[in-house]
């Protein structure tokens, strides 16, 4: 132990010991940035965005094609659907259950 504060050299040594005990040993290397992961993420993100855009475009094109009638040789027209699906009153009655109260 060293008397205080008569000897400036000892004071210097004590302060040196104190401050040097605080310094990280060994001195840390530069932090490792995550640029690689970021680059991969950026690539993935771009691919995802492109896929999504392509899907939306395809869906939109299909919707346009359908609304324009699509292929006239194979598509069923709305009139046909209505005509074929028309319900006849008598026909329906045939399938109605018998009223047990009668």
């Amino acid at each position: 132990m060293t008397p205080l504060p008569q000897n400036p050299d000892h004071l210097d040594r004590a302060f040196g010991a104190y401050f040097q005990a605080q310094v990280p040993t060994p001195w840390p290397a530069p932090p490792v940035p995550v640029e690689t992961r970021t680059a991969v993420n950026a690539g993935w993100s771009n691919r995802t965005r492109f896929t999504l855009a392509a899907s939306v475009a395809a869906l939109f094109a299909f919707a346009l094609w359908v609304s324009a009638g699509g292929d006239p040789t194979t598509a069923t027209k709305g009139d046909d659907l209505l005509r074929n699906g028309k319900a006849e009153g008598d026909g329906l009655k045939k399938h109605m259950p018998v009223d047990p109260m009668k």
Partner: peptide, 10 residues
């Protein structure tokens, strides 16, 4: 340090 009673240092 002196005023706080620290008379010696390692």
């Amino acid at each position: 340090l002196s005023a706080n009673g620290v008379t010696t240092l390692p």
